[in-house]
Design a protein around this nucleic acid. Sequence first.
DNA 1: TTAGATGCAAACGATTTGCGCGGAA
DNA 2: TTCCGCGCAAATCGTTTGCATCTAA
Lengths: 144, 144
Amino acid sequence: MHQSSVNLEALLDSCAEAGLRRTNALRACLKVFLASDQPLTLQEIGASPELDVDCDPATVYRLVTRLEEHRIVRRIGFHSRAAHYCLRESAHQDYLICRDCGSVEILDIACPVEHLEKQIASESGFKDLDHELEFYGRCVTCQS
Amino acid sequence: MHQSSVNLEALLDSCAEAGLRRTNALRACLKVFLASDQPLTLQEIGASPELDVDCDPATVYRLVTRLEEHRIVRRIGFHSRAAHYCLRESAHQDYLICRDCGSVEILDIACPVEHLEKQIASESGFKDLDHELEFYGRCVTCQS
DNA sequence: TTAGATGCAAACGATTTGCGCGGAA
DNA sequence: TTCCGCGCAAATCGTTTGCATCTAA
């Protein structure tokens, strides 16, 4: 809890550097991110009990979009209609998703493409490289 | 050309096995997939010059959805609003995408997570495992 | 003949945007 | 004070679905 308030201030500093103001909505959204161990949709952020200020969906959208532009937040596709987001400062995670029920498991593996990323960056000239790795399958429950 | 008509028949066979009828719309959509080297959105399929029969968007949607369920087609998220699809029979591809202009490059690399996939399958009990790997960054053009 | 496929049109849901007010710098 | 951020509401866009008709099997 103290830890997360430390993180919160650090995050707000990053946001300020990126040109965002220290508004209540921003603080509230960041807290929601810090309180969650899973990627969240915009709706989930707006409906989270951790959200201590009411935020309009448009506000959440604009905030998270800007956070993503400034690489404070990472976007994750999954195969759901809504995009998911998580803090980039958290350790990079790869996911295992059930095609049928949509459950999301966080994989406890060393990410296997770290060095590949550097190689691709240098070969392609791309900057700020990042990656997304997900496994899709049918989970045990959905196999019956 | 002859090659792709061979593929087309083989694909139609797979579809028939999966319970789909050999309709003109199905044939047309499969041809579009075969003619493209990049993943396509439903819109792109419907608007493709390779599509030799007019198909309603709803038809394309239902066809591709069914093809995906039967694992004849693979869905790819990218970070665009619309989902992309490609034939699963083509070799598995990983992608390099520009966050700014959205350009998609196909990575010419041996996929680095094949064996990891098997390991995850056995550890998790998931069936029909598949994965999606994309790299995101800013391309050379967009860096200026 | 008949179950499945298609077109049309309407519903849906997740963004995405315009605008006028309010609050951070 | 000034400009950015916010809520509200409307527009967009990519699906997604209901229904009557058509067609492959």
